[in-house]
Nucleic acid binder design. Structure first.
Lengths: 258, 258
DNA sequence: CGCGCAGTTGAAAGTTTTCAAATGCAGTGG
DNA sequence: CCACTGCATTTGAAAACTTTCAACTGCGCG
């Protein structure tokens, strides 16, 4: 099955036949079977290479929805501001993952998306993309797939929040990150947390202090090593055992290869 | 804008022009703009009138995914069984709502769906439906819409679970049910809970005892009246104020009229 | 009429939060 | 290059909320 991936604007290059690597994030973003004509259409639709600094927004809650965004580098958090002005983190997004699917076909974005560091994204203007999807069944299929995965991931998070202890939630997040790094061919056992403790706590429904204490506890028992945002998972099995009780891990938003 | 709705097998009738009421649940289920030819195609695809008793499953987790289901009467819960054998309720579904969208485009159902009482559903075989969607842009659009709503609803639940107290969670569920009854032209202030306390607690991440205590507390302060599963909301405003702190209420899975 | 499940209630135990305060780290300006 | 300021992280102790355990009540169904 051939694949297409969104690309770096500077390094676009096509190969003959049906395979075409447009981006360094092959397999992660929009891995779908299309022919060359369709690839060209996709290229027309997707705008590449928007760069953002730490703290910049890709889009703000309530602003008119136009596009989804594929993370190319860096990392993002999505969040909602509640009526009393509190921020609620709804997700973290790493390279190869797609932001904004919860706003698909709505007037406005249902959350804000902010860069956690210097990052870049590809823009997927949704209306055009949708048109294209009616013409390319595999594209439609793939997008249904991404969305249903997003639903399942979110369910997963709900379960985590409703039934699991602080330790289990953190173990779950660590494992989720681990898998997502692994998928990008990076070390699954040693990585840098893109987000502050603050956001972790917010996302997992825990006080910052609790997050900190759990990290400390994990460190003391030797399961992980932490220094600031650098984390080493010393015993993934133990972490996995911790969350066995619940059906599975934290959400992992990647576009899983078809 | 014309509408189509899935129907009772016995009372199928078409009206001329572009409006066609196939089911008593008009506006709730699949309200979309289509022409008559398209309506006929939809009718071919959707199987109507499957009846289930209390405790019956529409589908089981891990069984091969074929169809989504629109609730026609009664009510359902969806749930997952965790590795340690615990049940985790992931949602409640009332007439006009669609079950199974989280399994769209997957091999197997990602949860089980069980009738909470004598109920009936319409079956939407997904593969055929998907084909149809590529031919009817509004249908594709509508389904994207339903799915993105499902994502948002699930996010909402996560927020509820991560940041809200027991009282707020229950208030939120009550208001969600209230709105969903209202949408069906039923009383938004007096209704029968389709599910046992058990499932409420499970869904909201609370012990049954806590659910019971909160109901009692609400009753004592006069906000609601409860006798078993019969509930009367005496002061919706107070309930709304309770959950104001969080951005919004509980999930409401209805297909909102386009 | 009685069994069994659903719901309620009380008291103790556990987790997590909150409040307060100290320490570390990083970018800024002198 | 260093001190300074502000934010991030850590830690301790008390307070708050929810769960757990146990027991009791109520209701529906055979």
């Amino acid at each position: 099955m051939s694949e297409i991936t969104i690309t770096n604007a500077n390094s676009t290059h096509k190969t003959l036949g049906s395979t075409c690597h447009l981006c360094s994030l092959s397999n992660l973003c929009l891995p779908i079977a299309v022919n060359n004509t369709e690839i060209e259409r996709l290229e027309d639709v997707i705008k590449q290479g928007k760069v953002l600094d730490r703290g910049d927004h890709i889009f703000q809650e309530h602003s008119p929805f136009r596009s989804c965004f594929a993370v190319r580098s860096g990392s993002f958090k999505t969040y909602i501001v509640t009526e009393d002005g509190e921020e609620q983190v709804t997700g973290f997004y790493l390279p190869g993952e797609i932001i904004g699917m919860d706003s698909t076909n709505t007037e406005a974005y249902s959350c804000s998306a902010k860069a956690l560091e210097k990052s870049s994204v590809c823009e997927i203007p949704f209306e055009q993309f949708e048109d294209l999807a009616t013409k390319i069944p595999t594209l439609q299929h793939h997008f249904f797939q991404l969305m249903s995965r997003e639903i399942r991931d979110s369910r997963q998070l709900s379960m985590l929040l409703s039934k699991n202890t602080a330790e289990e939630r953190i173990a779950s997040l660590l494992l989720s990150l681990s898998e997502r790094f692994k998928r990008r061919k990076l070390s699954p056992t040693h990585f840098r947390l893109p987000m502050p403790r603050n956001d972790i706590g917010n996302y997992l429904g825990l006080a910052v202090e609790t997050v900190s204490r759990v990290f400390t506890r994990f460190q003391k028992t030797g399961i992980i090593s932490v220094q600031g945002r650098e984390v080493t998972l010393n015993d993934i099995e133990i972490l996995k055992d911790m969350i066995k009780r619940s059906s599975s891990g934290c959400q992992s938003k990647e576009a899983k290869a078809n």
